[in-house]
Write a protein that binds this DNA or RNA. Structure first.
Lengths: 295, 295
DNA sequence: CACACTTACGATATTCGTAAGGATT
DNA sequence: AATCCTTACGAATATCGTAAGTGTG
């Protein structure tokens, strides 16, 4: 029994006419006749009673009819669903991104992606840098955006840009008038930063401790927003990835470039090396890479 | 997308190996390779990732896998079900028979039918003669067994045997010693018979009234069993179709042949002339006809 | 070099459409 | 005569298997 044969049977059974069914199937009468004949032969008995002037169903045909309707509907649905997945008229991607990217770079990319593929469902996980790696590794997300990991076993890393730290100072601070700062100048002020598990915090400590000794931490927070607001209120200064520059200035703080040594680290796209990306994930990945490579 | 292609995909997806799938499908590797290729092309994207050394599923393949399992299971089930209907390993027939036949001739036929086709479900409707015709006409049953109807519009009648009436008298009656009776002798006793809507009753009245005047009805009942018991108790005499002879004697009554004029009518098998019988009904019909034609 | 999948190609089977046949209205 | 389904037959298409090719462990 083939799909074509069953489709032929359904067409005839519903119209009770070979001639009409022919048009619906875009098939010649003999071809249809044969298809039905072969179907009947493969099942072992007659499904249709053909008198020269009319067509009717045998009891077996009668019991096949509802089955055929359901089978073909299921078949077509499955086929259509898959096709839509491929043409990105449907499907889903899940991305995990570290907060600094999820809050700053990602939204604009997502906007463009959404415009291109409006029916693809995108799930964003805004989690700390380490969890991004874990989620990609466990296949809980297809794509991740994070700092380049020290060891990428099984992961593939596509670099997007170099993230370097910029100084954040209150608008009314004397430092705010400067065009650039040295780390020493910045660290002489009370320092506000993210709390420990954060990758930004760790990166900062690793780079600073060697040259300037312990970080003079005055305040800590989980959220970049809070850090920005605290700086704006004049509680101290901070250093954040350049990507967060606009966010900081919107919160009422002033950002300045920092002198050498630059504290910077590559940020990039991560996915499992073995697995192949879904069409949707591939499309989103392309979108992200294009946006950062071309600028 | 064809059934073969989906089957090929399923085999590969489950074994994660073209070579193993080949054996399961009884197919050469190139043929399988092509089948998958065509399937992927028809759906518009890759389902399997083939590195030369291993096979894995793309996310789309992953989402097709459960669909494929379900679709093919449904497909095979439907196919198997239909095949079983045809080979009479399954299926159902419904028969309506008038009480005199349902209680006497039918059980032995059904026994033989059941032995031949143990998995065919048979539904018997034990209804009065007129309802047999109605049920066949309304397609509530496929087969009917009843007296030959006066007008068979749309029905086909296959005669089985001539049913003639026999006299039923109490064992202790003087009539019981006789080897045969005339209608006049029988009608001189108090007469017990079935109630009005019964075909047996009407047939009896039609035949008798013309020659002997009104039936001398002493008692009436719906059930042949009751009639038999009443006769056995000596309440009167009766006349019943010959088919019921054994039943009457088991109830303790004596049956005797009746002289001319014979009151007889053809009993036969009925089905809708237009419709074709199901395999199961055809088989039961054959069984019944064979049993009565050959004896 | 052995294994696993793909490509190339000739042979076989199916399926299709045109043409002709038979039956019914 | 017209309609509708079937059979007959040649052509196009698809599928299969053998043989050769390619890349990996």
């Amino acid at each position: 029994m083939t799909v074509k044969q069953l489709r032929a049977f359904l067409a005839v059974a519903q119209s009770l006419s070979f001639a009409q069914a022919c048009e619906r199937l875009h098939l010649s009468q003999p071809a249809l006749s044969l298809a039905i004949k072969n179907l009947e032969q493969s099942l072992g008995g007659a499904l249709l009673v053909r008198t020269t002037r009319s067509v009717s169903l045998t009891p077996e045909g009668e019991s096949l009819l509802p089955l055929a309707v359901r089978l073909l509907a299921d078949w077509d649905n499955a086929e259509e669903l898959l096709r839509q997945h491929f043409t990105l008229q449907m499907g889903k991607v899940s991305v995990a991104a570290m907060p600094s990217f999820a809050g700053n770079g990602l939204p604009v990319v997502l906007k463009a992606f959404r415009d291109a593929y409006p029916r693809v469902n995108v799930t964003v996980h805004d989690v700390i840098n380490e969890q991004v790696l874990g989620m990609v590794r466990d296949s809980r997300v297809e794509l991740g955006i994070a700092f380049e990991p020290a060891t990428l076993d099984g992961l593939q890393f596509i670099p997007l840009y170099n993230d370097r730290f910029v100084a954040v100072v209150p608008l009314d601070s004397p430092l705010a008038a400067r065009s650039r700062l040295s780390w020493a100048e910045l660290l002489s002020e009370p320092f506000i930063t993210l709390q420990r598990p954060s990758a930004v915090r760790l990166l900062l400590e690793d780079s600073i401790v060697a040259r300037h000794g312990k970080l003079p931490v005055a305040f800590e927070s989980h959220q970049l927003v809070t850090v920005g607001r605290m700086v704006a209120e004049g509680l101290g200064v901070s250093a954040v990835p350049k990507l967060c520059l606009r966010q900081m200035e919107e919160l009422g703080a002033r950002c300045l470039p920092l002198d050498e040594p630059q504290v910077e680290r590559r940020v990039g796209l991560l996915h499992l090396a073995g697995h192949q990306l879904s069409s949707a994930a591939q499309a989103l990945s392309d979108e992200i890479v294009m946006r950062y490579r071309c600028q």
